[in-house]
Design a protein around this nucleic acid. Structure first.
Lengths: 240, 240
DNA sequence: TCCCTTGCGGTACGGACGTATCAATGACAG
DNA sequence: CTGTCATTGATACGTCCGTACCGCAAGGGA
């Protein structure tokens, strides 16, 4: 029934393998002959040509699953389905699942930095350090769907990173330039008297992280967080 | 070989079941007779009597695994091994795995509140609102092994709660009495002029959460966080 | 003596998981 | 025509997972 296969070209017998796809031709020559005599497939191969590449497509599927269903649901089969490819394609483009997860985190990291830079530069008053400072801090908050999804993914990854050195490394990669940036922006915006810009930057960045997590839970409203942020910026900076 | 069992008491034939432990007696009567004729087991049953109960023992195993290896490693079999019981015992004491995880989170929540209260009340200067405020905030930081383990577990649970309503409910259970408590303590300790205690409390609690997560990663030192906290408490409160 | 309850041992079931294996495909080079 | 390459299809393997099932142990109450 299942054994005894004959080559489609030369009618020779082929022995079926223990695993994998069942052979159709007995040799490369027969396969090439069949290919050539075909010439003009039913569909002229839409060649949709993923410009961003398969890897990118798969990584984005990881992000979506992690944000909507959590990292524990990001199995190879689920990721493949979400990316609309076969599981084999996932297997081909990444060494293993761990490699895929680490790559997805690294790419999200870069992505966030790029998008943040773009959004901040696009501001009309990009020259005003006060506006820059506010925008920089708000970049860490889930104030739109894109940032919310990103923060959800990052939160899931943070938890994993506590028990996975490879993931932790991504989080710790750049020491703390964010706090330094915020401190520099405070200095440029004109801090009030007896203000320790480094300490203020530390609490601001830490606070925005904490408040962001509350926002994800719906434990606070966006307006509430904005008001808190306004208050503290007004307190730190001179003039009004 | 495997079939054809005879009752240990009446020597009657028993048919082996398709699943589960193989029968030894043919009836309840024979089993009871064997039990009675035994009377005085090899070990006089030390009756170790878990004072805290099996459920507690199992839940603590969940905490340890979640803190050291992450929630995704908290499988029923791993939990049972960590608690030094059989998987069947875990199955018996909890409706299912999800019930166990939710229970473990709820118990940790209570545990943390109790321990925090004890530690704060044990302070010598428990009457001084300034000391109380500092202790309350430090309670959220991983400043010793116990609090560090607890925070690691909570971080793992937080990530899960983003995609698990039952877990989210535990986090959201009490609206935000912590911020209210901190605000009350600031008021009692004597805030400086033009200080909005509610806004200060919000950023302090959020900031301490964010800084605590950095501490878990080793992105900051305990001394650094303490200094930041000192600075802000000194800034908010009048007098020195 | 019998029934019932609480607690647990041991194991089986069915499915999902990450990964391995082998072949086919389409394009190109020699 | 043949070889090679990057990519993908189609399973199969072995393991682990959550849970279901059946029975034993020890005692309480009638």
């Amino acid at each position: 029934m299942r054994d005894e296969i004959t080559c489609r070209v030369c009618r020779g017998a082929i022995r079926p393998p223990a695993r994998g796809r069942r052979p159709v031709y007995c040799s490369r020559a027969c396969q090439a002959r069949a290919y050539r005599s075909r010439r003009d497939p039913p569909v002229p191969v839409p060649v949709e040509a993923e410009p961003a590449g398969r890897r990118r497509q798969i990584v984005e599927a990881v992000w979506r699953i992690a944000a909507e269903r959590g990292l524990q649901m990001a199995t190879v089969r689920e990721i493949a389905a979400e990316a609309e490819v076969s599981p084999r394609v996932v297997q081909y483009h990444f060494a293993d699942k761990h490699d895929l997860l680490v790559t997805a985190l690294r790419m999200l990291h870069r992505e966030n930095e790029i998008r943040a830079r773009e959004r901040i530069i696009a501001l009309r008053d990009a020259a005003d350090p006060r506006v820059l400072l506010r925008a920089t801090l708000e970049e860490l908050l889930p104030l739109d769907d894109q940032r919310q999804a990103s923060l959800r993914v990052m939160a899931a990854y943070y938890a994993r990173s506590l028990t996975d050195p490879a993931l932790a490394e991504v989080f710790l990669h750049d020491a703390n330039p964010l706090e330094d940036l915020v401190a520099a922006l405070i200095t440029a915006a004109g801090p009030g008297p007896s203000i320790d810009v480094a300490r203020e930057a530390d609490l601001l960045v830490g606070g925005v992280s904490g408040l962001g997590l509350d926002l994800l839970h719906g434990r606070r409203t966006r307006a509430d967080v904005r008001r808190t942020l306004d208050y503290h910026l007004g307190r730190i900076l001179t003039g009004r």
